[in-house]
Design a binder for these strands. Structure first.
Lengths: 340, 340
DNA sequence: CCCTGGCACTCGACTGTAGCGAGTGCCAGT
DNA sequence: ACTGGCACTCGCTACAGTCGAGTGCCAGGG
């Protein structure tokens, strides 16, 4: 598979033109639009090779060429130069995120910002509980047998949950419970709480034992098992932009995939240290998304990563632009989180 | 506009057939499928009248008839018999909602349930803060100058917000602040808190004055002004079901509308006592939804209403079925809320 | 007076044919 | 190794013709 420089240039040109026009691109218009300084016939020969190698294909005989998933992959890996963001875009990001009042707000704004800048569907994961530490646990009496458990993570994320107690519980006991759980759990990574919670039951004074047992169950459910991850989504309307040409006609599978939290997490969640990941068409494990591409990355204060964010669009998308935007937004959000 | 019984029967038949088949319905197939006991010619005459009155129309000359928005309206108001839910559906509702552990969970499950049963887009409003009372306010110290304010409403809804204090604040003061705000505000409707909050500042001891002022600002922002209403959405994939025939080709405007909280609230939010509301096509004030119909209702424990829920679909939808489902789900959720 | 059967008419959907043109593959020539 | 030329493919569009579902209208009968 020796692809000389010119063949690569041809591939790049094809990708760029196709992304821009959405139409199969032919040899003639290629030489016109780009300075390839060779004749269409030569380009045709190169195209034949590229097709043989699986980087491009013809929708039908005697039509222009269209990049394959493999072609996009090569383009992303070796052919696209990073497209620096315009100052206007940078300013937009800063302005948009500046007004955020708390974590929920940051996430909401981020996801909208991403959707708007990339004109695609955006997904942002709330800082993962598994990667957070407990900052504080609060117990609020609601009635004699009911407590509200509130957990505040160091990322600023807050989870709450109603606890139904087996028996009425005096105010003093509530204070004791609160003290005990905070002593044991504050500062601990949520993923590491389960053994400590067990110890919490064993070590608590006998009269608190039943209450603590109930509390522990809920604690584990809330902090470790149940909706451990939350997501924000925006820009679905962008799916319907490309006049149904993208996504081979039906939005159905895409919309279905977007409704599944688990699926989205898979897309966004696999976080590797500050790397940006691009999944193109077939590379997606989820069948429903075989016609889509996903650009995702992790984010967090400093070098640590607390969650993922990303963008989903047609395989025929502006990779350099999208990649630059996702990267920039993730960095800004990271800085914002570091300030708190 | 004297429409005798047979003409109404014809209209009903047209609506039912069109909803079922999605194709314009002609006089001949009409008499075949329904027992109208008259000839096609007679039906044609009736149709002519119905068309003149604006209840049906022809997509093109010499095609079958299709109901107009006005036709659907008449159908909903006077022609559709209530379609009782099947026992299976009732059981599904109960089973689906039974496992809910707290308010968030109830809302999440409800919205999915609605989407699934009606095979349409579902929207559920979280219990409105304006219609809730304060059950408890909690202040949790995060750092010397930061507090986390947690508000628990009597509907079970919880809101939290970070408060940035002007100066470091001693633990005792936090306790005092907590006591003061709870004394004044517990049991009060959130919509009625603003004057009380002002009084709170005036009545607080001098050394707490600055802290209380900051706190009040955030209090008002959180409880009254800012994201006062929250919504859950599900079933967007159902929009892409009707093969693009519904919604005259483009999902774009619908998806756009669904991304706007404000718009959705308008759809769902106007709550009248236990009434169910149906908005058909043009009757929607929002331009983007002129091709859609919305069935919405309020819900809440007992007779009180704390929020809205509803379903959005093509004007060509199964009104009796959808109405029955929405009504039933709202009632179940109301009962569920009453238990807490 | 209302309903019915009959009839002529309309018009969209579908089919088949023809011409156009963008695009290709191949080959011979430089 | 590149180029120009040439024959070929095939999707797209336009056009004509046919088919059939459905209509409107009218005259006749209960």
């Amino acid at each position: 598979m020796g692809l000389d420089d010119r063949k690569l240039a041809v591939l790049r040109a094809i990708v760029e033109d196709y992304v821009a026009t959405q139409e199969p691109v032919g040899s003639k218009s290629l030489v016109e639009r780009h300075q390839l300084s060779v004749s269409p016939a030569t380009v045709r020969n190169d195209m034949a090779v590229l097709e043989e190698e699986g980087y491009i294909r013809q929708p039908h005989t005697s039509a222009g060429r269209v990049p394959t998933d493999r072609g996009y992959r090569l383009f992303v890996d070796r052919l696209s130069r990073v497209k620096p963001l315009s100052p206007a875009e940078r300013r937009a990001i800063e302005r948009f995120l500046a007004g955020a009042v708390d974590l929920d707000d940051v996430v909401q704004r981020t996801v909208r910002l991403l959707a708007q800048l990339t004109r695609q569907v955006a997904v942002v994961q709330y800082p993962s509980l598994a990667r957070s530490r407990v900052r504080h646990l609060e117990l609020v009496p609601i009635s004699t047998t009911r407590l509200m458990l509130v957990m505040i993570a160091d990322t600023g994320r807050v989870e709450q949950r109603l606890v139904e107690m087996p028996a009425p519980i005096p105010a003093d006991d509530v204070l004791d419970l609160r003290r005990l759980v905070n002593e044991k759990l504050v500062g601990v990574f949520l993923s590491e709480t389960p053994p400590l919670v067990q110890a919490l039951i064993d070590d608590s004074p006998p009269h608190l034992r039943p209450a603590m047992t109930t509390l522990s169950t809920v604690l584990l459910e809330t902090l470790v098992e149940r909706h451990e991850e939350r997501l924000a989504l925006a820009g679905t309307a962008n799916l319907a932009r490309g006049g149904l040409l993208d996504f081979q006609g039906s939005l159905r599978p895409i919309l279905e995939a977007l409704e599944e939290q688990v699926v989205l997490l898979k897309l966004i969640g696999e976080v590797e240290p500050s790397t940006l990941r691009v999944r193109i068409g077939d590379e997606n494990e989820i069948d429903n998304l075989r016609a889509a591409s996903v650009v995702s990355t992790g984010y967090g204060p400093g070098a640590t990563i607390v969650g993922g964010m990303g963008v989903l669009g047609p395989t025929r998308m502006d990779y350099p632009g999208t990649i630059a935007t996702v990267r920039a937004v993730a960095r800004y959000v990271g800085e914002l989180l570091a300030q708190n």
